[in-house]
Computed example of a mutant assay.
Amino acid sequence: MDVRLQQLQHWVSKMAAEQGLSLRSEILAPVSGDASFRRYFRVSGEQYSWIAVDAPPEKEDSAPFVKLARDWRGQGVRVPALVAVDLELGFMLLEDFGDRLLLPELNDISADEHYGAALDTLQHIQQIPASELPPYDEVLLQREMGLFDEWFINSLLALQLTDDERQLLADTRSLLVESALAQPQVAVHRDYHSRNLMPLDDDGLGVIDFQDAVRGAHTYDLVSLFRDSYIRWPDPRVHAWVEQFRCALKADNIPVPDSAQFLRDFDLMGMQRQLKVLGIFSRLSLRDGKDGYLADMPRTLGYLLRAAARYPETQAFARWLEQRIVPAMSAHPLFDAGELALELG
Rank of each mutant, 00 (worst) to 15 (best):
M271I: 06
G146Q: 09
T172L: 14
S285E: 12
H189P: 00
H114V: 04
E144P: 07
F335E: 09
R227V: 05
P257K: 01
A63R: 15
M269S: 15
M15T: 10
H124K: 14
K250A: 15
L305V: 12
D99R: 07
W50V: 07
T300M: 10
L340D: 10
L200E: 09
D149A: 10
L181K: 05
A29L: 14
M329V: 12
R39I: 08
G76E: 06
D296K: 02
G270C: 10
P129Q: 06
D221S: 05
I125N: 00
L106S: 00
P234G: 03
N253C: 12
V256T: 14
P298L: 12
S179I: 08
A117S: 13
N107R: 08
L205Q: 03
A251L: 12
D61M: 02
M329I: 05
D112P: 04
L175C: 09
H218G: 04
N107V: 11
F226T: 03
V12N: 06
F41C: 04
D2H: 14
L169P: 06
P57F: 09
W50K: 00
L157T: 06
A248R: 15
E178C: 07
V326S: 02
F281S: 04
D86H: 05
L68M: 01
N107L: 11
P255N: 02
D99I: 02
T172K: 00
A217L: 00
H189R: 02
D291T: 13
E113D: 15
D209R: 04
T121G: 04
E132G: 08
W151M: 09
F91W: 03
D86N: 12
P129M: 02
V207C: 07
L304Q: 10
I231Y: 11
A260K: 14
V188I: 14
V186P: 01
R38Y: 13
G98S: 12
G279R: 09
L284S: 05
P56K: 01
A17H: 13
V214K: 00
A69N: 03
E113I: 11
L205D: 07
G206M: 05
H189G: 04
D171E: 15
S62Y: 04
G289P: 07
Y115N: 05
D288H: 06
N107F: 10
D228H: 09
R195D: 12
R190N: 03
V277M: 04
E138I: 03
E105D: 13
D212K: 04
E18T: 08
E95T: 02
L93V: 11
L340A: 03
L222Q: 02
D221N: 04
R287Q: 14
